[in-house]
Amino acid sequence: MENFTPYSALAGGLLIGAAATLLLWFNGRVAGISSITGSLLTPRSGEVLWRVIFLVGLVAGVAVFYAAFGGAPLTRASYSSGLLIAAGLLVGFGTSLGGGCTSGHGVCGLGRLSLRSLVATVTFLLVGIAATFVSRHIVGVI
């Protein structure tokens, strides 16, 4: 585990949990990124601005971090564009069909002790592990 970074991972996780708590406590909203982006595709009045502002804040937070400490991820030269697009389609369709992603089901759903979210989180973790194994060690495309 040469790349293991437990302290920054834990501290980052605490910040994410604090952000989700703030949003629910003050505004009654769930910090699920897939729901936030998905809802913007079929906009309804009164449901757009808060989501846009949250996403602007998210990108700004990441930008501030990169500006202060560097380390922005670089394009992976060996990674196929077609595969990246296919993966994006799957992530978009799957999170909309399943009603959430790592933040909506993982961080917020587990926080509400939702059984649906627990089942979803365990499922996408296990399937993710299997998909990485197959694409990296069997097919060898990533």
Binding site: V62, L83, A87, V91, G98, S103, T121, F124, L125, I142
Partner: peptide, 25 residues
Amino acid sequence: PLLAGAVIFGIGWGISGYCPGPAVA
């Protein structure tokens, strides 16, 4: 839908390393 969605998402996530938050980030 919950299970199928989680499976489809898991495949895309496991191939790319991106879930929606990091993709927006």
